[in-house]
Design a binder for these strands. Structure first.
Lengths: 192, 192
DNA sequence: AGGATACCTGACCGATCGGTCAGAAACTGC
DNA sequence: GCAGTTTCTGACCGATCGGTCAGGTATCCT
């Protein structure tokens, strides 16, 4: 009763942790197996290939983000909608730190992998729905800095400071800073 | 006269490019050698080990950043000094895209390597000289978002958009956004 | 009890990894 | 022309990579 998680789930968790911290190519299947307490063969029993494992590890975050984007597109461009979106987005970042870290940091080098391509497409849609074709360069940079910066803070806070900030402080601070960054951008949500 | 660069420099350039785009562990010495038009043995003739190659590729950026920080510390905390610092820093980011990309994206996973550790220490000093112990959580997040976001934009702009922004537009936009982000932070440069 | 099924593992495979080494080729100073 | 040095390379090494396969064990269904 104590350990409710199946071997598959344990492996998924360990894999995501390792992929995010030492990189996809820097993580070997035997590392994952060892940490999770199984053999490499067991990893390859549950997941046909290393790439399948990555796919399975990242999919939940992608689906969540898709939902958030759909909600935003359905609601329209009212200011309150923007506020709710930022809050939802920051919560998404906080609850999917590792996946987001992977997208941001390794999305470029893993473009061949389908799940990564889907994630990148999502981010492009996000960017376009927030700062469309008409947006100025400053608006684009503003959006990029907000997204990349927020994602970066999720992990950097632990890397740098002797005493990492508590989660709720990070959340409210992120909401404030991201809201402030996105405020000047003319919002025009589009259908996905 | 056409090709002034020695084999060593060519290898350094290719290595930095590959390390930044597909990751340190995702890059093999033979890849670097092939792209540069040499053999793997030649790489290991000029650089004792893969790690040495990384060290040599990143060192110039580290030294430049050290100089910028020293200048800032020497000048003091006047508003004009802050402005100049941001401009210098953004120029540094733009002129060292690949190195910065490596620090930000892989600094965590390469902590065992001396040159990376030096770079991380530099960033911590930068953070402390900008937003000291007294800074609020919002200030810390503001700084982190500015740094990570700016660094992220350097590469993301090419990954996302169909038509990447021209460099000078990115520069001025980055200066504007970073200045705006750091503005509320009480500056107190310290000796390095 | 007994067969089907799910789960897990060790042995093994070819490929590639970072790295060593002996020596060829090219350039130096004399 | 010739020794000495620098630059470069192919052959080779042990280790590890992702992945296959045959088989062991446990569980479930009847």
């Amino acid at each position: 009763m104590a350990s409710r998680s199946s071997a598959r789930d344990e492996l998924l968790g360990v894999a995501l942790e390792q992929f995010a911290s030492v990189g996809y190519s820097g993580t070997s299947l035997s590392q994952i197996a060892d940490i999770a307490g199984y053999s490499k063969s067991t990893v390859l029993y549950h997941f046909a290939a290393k790439e399948t494992l990555l796919e399975a590890a990242l999919s939940p975050a992608i689906e969540t983000l898709t939902g958030i984007l759909n909600d935003f597109a359905r609601r329209g461009a009212t200011p309150s909608s923007q506020g709710e979106f930022v809050a939802q987005f920051v919560d998404f970042l906080l609850e999917n730190r590792l996946s987001v870290h992977m997208f941001i940091n390794q999305g470029q080098s893993l473009q061949g992998i389908p799940v990564i391509h889907r994630a990148n497409s999502l981010i492009v849609e996000l960017a376009e729905s927030l700062s469309g074709d008409m947006a100025t360069a400053v608006d684009k940079v503003r959006f990029g800095v907000a997204l990349g910066g927020a994602a970066y803070m999720l992990v950097a806070s632990e890397t740098w400071s002797r005493d990492p900030l508590p989660v709720d402080e990070i959340r409210s601070a992120l909401v404030a800073v991201v809201t402030e960054l996105l405020a000047p951008i003319h919002l025009r949500p589009t259908a996905l």
